[in-house]
C-alpha cells in the first residue's frame, strides 16, 4: 500500500514537472531557432514571463462571446493536464497510465481540439471559422495517423497502457524493429502538424493565408489566452516525450530511488533537448507548405503509420 501510495505521489509529481517544464521546452526551441536563423534570441525563460504577464492582465471579451468561449480555455487546459498525467516522463511504473490509455490520450486531444474549434467559431468572425475549419481538417488526418503510429507500439507490447508498454520495450532491450521506424517517422510528421510547426503551420505570423492554430485563439486575451498557450506548450511536450520515451526509452527510471529518478530526469532532458535541435533544424531548412499540400503530407504520415502496423503484424509476430 505504501509502495502504491509512493507510486501515485510520484505520478502527481511527474505531472507537475510536466506542466512546469513545458514552457521551458518551448523557450528552448525558440532560442535554438533564433540562433539558427541569426536572430537575437530571447531568454530561455521568456515563455514563463509571457504567461505571468498574461495571467496578471484583465480579460477583454468580444461582445457576443458566450459562456462556451469563456469555459473553453479551462477545458482545453484541463484536457492537456490530464493527457500529461498519463504519459510517463521520468519513471515508468506510472499508475496514472491505467486511468487512461493511448486511445483515451487521443480522445483528450480531440476533446481539447473540439472546444478550441468551437471557441473559434463562437465570436462569429471569419478568422475564427477559418481557423476552426482548417484545424479540424488537419486534425482529421493527423489524429488517425497518430493513433496508428502508437498502435505499432501497443501491438508490440500487446497493451495500450503506456507505462506497461514502455516497460515492455525497455525489457526487450535493443531490438531492431522495422515497424518502429515507420511509426517514428509518422509520429514525427504528426507532431509537426499537431503542434503548429513549419511546414504545416507557422504560429509566428498573423497572416490570413498561413494561420491555423492562431486564428482560433485570436480573440482570446489575458488568463484565457495564457491557458490556451500553456495548453499548446504542454501538447508539444507530450508529443516530444512520446517520441523520446517510446522509441528511445533508455534511461527512464524503473525504481523509485533518488539515483534512478535523477538519471531519469537527466536522460529525458537530454533527449528532449536533442529532439528540439532536430525540430529547430527542420523548421529552419523547410518552408511553409500551401494549405492544400498539407493533406498530402498527413496522408503520407497516415500511410507510413499503417505500414508500420502492417509490418509489425506480418513480419514481427510469431504465428
Amino acid at each position: 500500500m505504501v509502495d502504491n501510495l509512493n507510486a501515485w505521489l510520484d505520478s502527481a509529481l511527474q505531472t507537475l514537472l510536466f506542466i512546469a517544464g513545458a514552457p521551458l521546452l518551448a523557450g528552448w526551441i525558440k532560442r535554438l531557432k533564433c540562433h539558427l536563423q541569426n536572430r537575437a534570441a530571447p531568454s530561455l525563460f521568456q515563455p514563463y514571463r509571457d504567461l505571468v504577464k498574461l495571467f496578471a492582465k484583465d480579460v477583454v471579451l468580444a461582445e457576443h462571446a458566450s459562456w462556451l468561449f469563456r469555459a473553453a480555455p479551462y477545458i482545453v487546459f484541463g484536457a492537456m493536464v490530464l493527457s500529461a498525467a498519463v504519459v510517463p516522463l521520468v519513471a515508468v511504473p506510472l499508475p496514472a497510465s491505467a486511468i487512461a490509455d493511448v486511445i483515451v490520450l487521443a480522445g483528450f486531444f480531440a476533446l481539447a481540439r473540439f472546444f478550441q474549434a468551437l471557441a473559434g467559431m463562437d465570436i462569429g468572425t471569419a478568422f475564427g471559422g477559418m481557423g476552426a475549419s482548417r484545424e479540424m481538417t488537419v486534425a482529421s488526418l493527423a489524429e488517425p495517423a497518430m493513433l496508428m503510429a502508437v498502435f505499432t507500439l501497443t501491438m508490440t507490447a500487446s497493451t495500450t497502457n503506456l507505462s506497461i508498454a514502455i516497460r515492455h520495450i525497455l525489457a526487450a532491450g535493443l531490438v531492431l524493429r522495422p515497424s518502429f521506424l515507420f511509426a517514428l517517422l509518422s509520429l514525427a510528421m504528426v507532431t509537426v502538424a499537431e503542434t503548429g510547426h513549419i511546414p504545416v503551420d507557422n504560429p509566428a505570423t498573423h497572416l490570413e493565408l498561413t494561420m491555423l492554430h492562431e486564428a482560433m485563439v485570436l480573440e482570446y486575451s489575458a488568463r484565457h489566452l495564457a491557458l490556451m498557450e500553456w495548453a499548446s506548450m504542454i501538447k508539444l511536450m507530450i508529443y516530444a516525450v512520446l517520441i523520446s520515451n517510446i522509441f528511445l526509452p533508455w534511461g527512464i527510471a524503473s525504481r523509485f530511488t533518488v539515483a534512478a529518478i535523477t538519471v531519469g530526469t537527466l536522460a529525458v532532458t537530454a533527449k528532449l533537448a536533442l529532439l528540439s535541435v532536430l525540430l529547430a533544424l527542420w523548421e529552419t531548412v523547410l518552408a511553409k507548405m500551401r494549405l492544400f499540400r498539407v493533406p498530402q503530407f498527413l496522408g503520407f504520415a497516415f500511410l507510413l503509420a499503417l505500414l508500420g502496423v502492417l509490418t509489425h503484424v506480418i513480419l514481427e509476430t510469431a504465428v
Binding site: A132, M148, A305, L306
Partner: peptide, 27 residues
C-alpha cells in the same frame, strides 16, 4: 488493422462534422 485505422479516421471526421454543425447553428 486497416479497418481500425479507418475507424480512427472516421471518428476524427465525425468530430469535424459536429464541430461544424454545432458551431454554425449555435455559435
Amino acid at each position: 488493422p486497416v479497418a481500425a485505422a479507418l475507424l480512427a479516421l472516421t471518428t476524427a471526421i465525425v468530430t469535424a462534422t459536429f464541430v461544424k454543425a454545432y458551431g454554425v447553428a449555435f455559435l
